[in-house]
Computed example of a mutant assay.
Amino acid sequence: MQCFPIPSFFESEKVDQFWRVPYQKRAEEAKEWGQKYKILPSREDKTKTILLLIDVQNTFCLPDFELFVAGKSGNGAVEDNIRLCRFIYRNLGNITTIAATMDTHKAMQIFHPIFWMDKQGNHPQAGITMISYEDVKQGRWKVNPNIANNFNISVEKLENHALHYVKKLTEDSKYPLTIWPYHSMLGGIGHGLVSSVEEALFFHSIVRSNQTQFELKGDNPLTENYSVLSPEVLKNSQGEKIAQKNTQFLNKLLSFDKIIVAGQAKSHCVAWTVEDLLTEIQRKDPSLAKKVYLLEDCTSPVVIPGIIDFTEQAEVTFQRFSEAGMHIINSTNDTIFNHLP
């Protein structure tokens, strides 16, 4: 497979900033680029490869935003995205389709501070508060009664759901309910893709005549949605469905010959998405795991110095993916596609 040079307009020092992509100019350059390097439209690819980008959004990837994924280096997501952009440009002719997931939230959701309060009416502190089943059962944290009308349900029903929710997380061995800062807010700058990545995706779509796909997740107020393929909890305390798996997108992913995964965060949304993908693969045909490639140098774990470090959990999870047959690879190897069977 041919690797291409990095376009001169790509500036690695701007990856940690947001700015307007000059679409028309990039479109004209993309057309010239495709002609210069004789890059064929993606419909002519004999091997169909999808690059799945998990939540490469400002809210997670820019240092001044709400949930910057710093990783061990302290600048993890920025460094990851520099490598990611270069990977896309070098492999314009090798990547058939790019799909980007978009974490999408509003203020009143089960993992945001306004949803909960203590006996004094104080909301939990975002970023460091985890709410367990025992916390809710014993009344240390309870549902904010003022928000129930936003979901068109009674306070009692919302309280029952909250207790059921944290219990289900425990039963399913999920992470405890974490109260996150308001982030990925629909309509806000934080929700948008990192500008440099957006530019690379747009350039790819024009060069290959292939529409970038966007998958929104996380807008259900009653459940977390780390994985793009499935919410954390699917039913309420009465057994009524509150959410459903993204079966259509899952089947689309599995229709490709190769699935390459990158994004943020390695310990959360990337891990959960790949976990759901692996579960379906093992149900259908375990050998399909060999078509999945994880760009380890384009993802970082959640690390909040002095508070929490998910590095070890992420490493253990990725090791399990490897043992299941998935490939842990490095994006900077220019012959990477030659090595893929």
Rank of each mutant, 00 (worst) to 15 (best):
L250H: 08
E79I: 11
Y165M: 03
F203S: 14
K174V: 00
T273Q: 03
M326C: 07
I328E: 01
N144F: 12
G93E: 07
S195P: 14
P181V: 02
G218S: 05
I259F: 13
L84Q: 02
H183D: 10
N81V: 02
F151K: 10
S237T: 05
L234K: 15
Q24A: 11
T317W: 12
H191W: 13
A99E: 03
M108N: 14
G239H: 05
L340D: 11
E296I: 07
G93K: 04
K119N: 09
E32F: 03
Q109T: 01
E44K: 11
A77I: 03
P145G: 04
K38Y: 10
W33T: 13
E312H: 15
I39W: 06
T317M: 06
L67C: 07
T101A: 06
E296P: 13
L67G: 03
E323F: 08
K217I: 00
L294I: 11
C85L: 02
Q120P: 08
K46P: 09
V207G: 12
A162Q: 09
V194L: 05
S154A: 06
F115N: 02
W116G: 04
I114W: 08
L177R: 04
G188M: 00
M326Y: 10
T178W: 14
V316D: 14
T104H: 15
A271D: 15
S195W: 10
Y182G: 12
A148N: 07
K119C: 00
T104L: 08
P145Y: 07
N146H: 11
E296Y: 13
Q17D: 14
P176C: 05
M326N: 13
G71R: 02
N333Q: 03
T299F: 05
L278W: 14
L254I: 12
L340F: 15
R140Q: 15
K48E: 10
V274T: 15
T178F: 12
V69M: 08
S184E: 10
K252P: 10
I153R: 13
I189T: 14
I39H: 09
L40C: 07
D64L: 00
Q125F: 05
L163T: 06
M130N: 15
Y293K: 06
D257P: 04
K142Y: 08
L51K: 01
N150Y: 15
K142Q: 11
Q109M: 10
S196Q: 02
P305Y: 08
K252N: 13
N94W: 07
A30N: 05
V316W: 09
V274D: 13
G187W: 05
L277R: 12
Y89T: 01
F18T: 15
Y37Q: 00
